[in-house]
Amino acid sequence: MRDQLNEIRESAKLAIEGATSLEELKEIQVQYLGKKGKLTQVLRGMGKLSAEERPVIGQLANVIRDELGEVFENSSKALATKAMEQKLLKENIDVTLPGRQMNLGSIHPVTLVEKRIKEIFTQMGYTVEEGPEVENDYYNFERLNLPKNHPAREMQDTFYISEDIVLRTHTSPVQARVMDELAPHLPVKIIAPGRVFRRDDDATHSPMFHQVEGLIVDENITFADLRGTLLEFVKQMFGEDSSIRLRPSYFPFTEPSAEVDVSCIFCDGKGCRLCKQTGWIEILGSGMVHPRVLEMAGYDSEKVTGFAFGMGIDRIAMLKYGIDDMRLLFENDIRFLKQF
């Protein structure tokens, strides 16, 4: 019987080693250790053994069972590892193939810049406002200290709908509309982005473009506040190293008025083709709100002051993205749009 057991041990080991798959191994396990397996059958004959032999053989059988169990276990692990390796090998892919195309659109550069401007000013406590694009002459001109036949109306070539209705030539009428709504409440602190229209069409002018108006009215607002606010804006918009230069100018609705230049973002103010060697690029017009404008809105110009500014969004977008022809903004070539 001892020989029988030893022979089972050897043949089982051979069979296990020869197994090439987990399934095969499972079969071998059943064949030897299963309920009807060879080892079990041998042990069933134990009853015929003498009392002295029985514990000895029993112990041997247990040893063999444990031993084979261990061999099965090891072999099984090895085969599983091998199978996993084979699976992984089979599932190899070319990771350099392009990914599945996801659809993301794009936001127009003018909107992107407008959004940034809104962020900067809302952080400073301004509220975003809007007004109509087709506007009364009254709001577009008269309320901005530009009565009919004022020579300064010539500065803006106007589209007319009727004698008293125009396509707004700037976002400034929103100033008057908001002040009408709020007066005599203080402060007025708004920006107003939107489309504006002028009779002009070439590489640097478009008959429709976008502006942002800014207005603050309160007690003790100073020209220094205007300078500080615009400096903060250009630093956030064009970078911490940017600086501004104010030049005296004229707008009927502000006084003193200033044209504002930003240090050239292409050459850091050293002078290049884009800033015409001056180191400065004009980006906006601004000034202290003219007392007449405050008075027409019902504010006491002896007690309150304010500043206002207006900038071309399209122009800033062109500067920021290095776009050299304004018409590209409105051609909407998908290859252009997708770059943003």
Binding site: T127, L186, P187, I216, D218, F223, A224, D225, G228
Partner: peptide
């Protein structure tokens, strides 16, 4: 002219 920021009431 100096650069300051407006001291204005909450909007």
């Amino acid at each position: 002219i100096p650069t300051t920021l407006p001291v204005s009431a909450t909007n």
